[in-house]
Simulated scan of single mutants.
Amino acid sequence: MRLVVVSAGLSVPSSTRLLADRLAAAVGRQAEVELEVVELRDLAVEIAHNFTNGFPGRKLAAALAAVTGADGLIAVTPVFTASYSGLFKSFFDVLDMDALAGKPVLIAATGGTARHSLVLEHALRPMFAYLRAVVVPTGVYAASEDWGAEGLEGRVERAAGELAALMRGLSAAAPVRDDLDVVPFAERLAALRSAG
């Protein structure tokens, strides 16, 4: 299975890339994947040119093809002005509208304070829902104080497990129980009417 990681970190080293790498490693422990990382920092000029001339450069075209052909996607952005970065949004704006339809996506973000953690729910999840991706239930946010603290690794492992399950085509739901009796609705309704 092909797993593509899109990282919108701007600095080197980058906490955004660090979180992306941890998520990818966690997915790799739960499923056999072929990994490709797309660093948006390296594509910034080509993304801007794509907006003005309508054509992706060579590196951007390869990145867009990788995302389109992936079996699963990890998308990680730093928080800028209480939302995803402009570079992150611009990349997904130049992606073909149908490229993520039905594709499993794990969303994640990094920021300086835990107060921005809702960026996952008010910015990233709606954007990927609009693109018709299947976003895993657990998003991962890492504030500065989360690095090395208890809790981050558990969220990383849970989200990675959900993505790996979707990539394998399995339901992330609980196993099917075979000890339940299924009663047709009409039969149940008739029984309720006769009892009343």
Results as ranks from 00 to 15, higher is better:
P137S: 12
T52G: 01
L163G: 03
S194W: 06
A108E: 01
A123G: 04
A123R: 00
L87S: 02
G28N: 08
K59E: 15
L120A: 06
P184H: 09
D179F: 09
L106Y: 05
V76D: 00
K89Q: 13
P56K: 10
G154N: 12
E145Y: 09
E39A: 14
I74Y: 02
S83P: 01
P126L: 10
H49G: 13
D93I: 11
S171H: 10
I107G: 00
A186I: 09
A186D: 14
V140S: 01
R22Q: 14
P175Y: 07
T110E: 01
L19H: 05
G9D: 03
R29I: 07
P56N: 10
A195E: 14
I74E: 00
G151Y: 13
M167W: 06
E34A: 15
L10H: 09
D93P: 08
Q30I: 08
A24S: 12
K103S: 01
P126K: 12
L35I: 08
L163M: 11
M167I: 08
V5D: 01
L10C: 06
E32P: 04
A133H: 00
A61D: 15
D96F: 03
A133P: 00
S14G: 08
F92L: 03
D98V: 13
Q30D: 07
A172V: 11
L166G: 03
A143M: 12
L100N: 02
D98C: 02
V136G: 02
R17F: 05
V156T: 06
P184E: 12
S144V: 14
T110P: 00
L163Q: 04
A31S: 13
E153M: 12
S117C: 06
G72M: 04
A63L: 06
A195R: 15
G69V: 10
H116Q: 13
V156C: 07
A159M: 09
A66N: 08
Y141D: 03
L180T: 11
A114K: 11
D71P: 03
I74C: 00
E34N: 13
G148R: 11
P137W: 08
A165C: 10
L40S: 02
V38S: 02
W147L: 09
P137H: 11
A8Q: 02
A160P: 02
L60C: 06
A190H: 11
R158Y: 07
D179N: 13
G112H: 11
A25Q: 15
G9Q: 04
S144E: 14
V76E: 00
D96I: 03
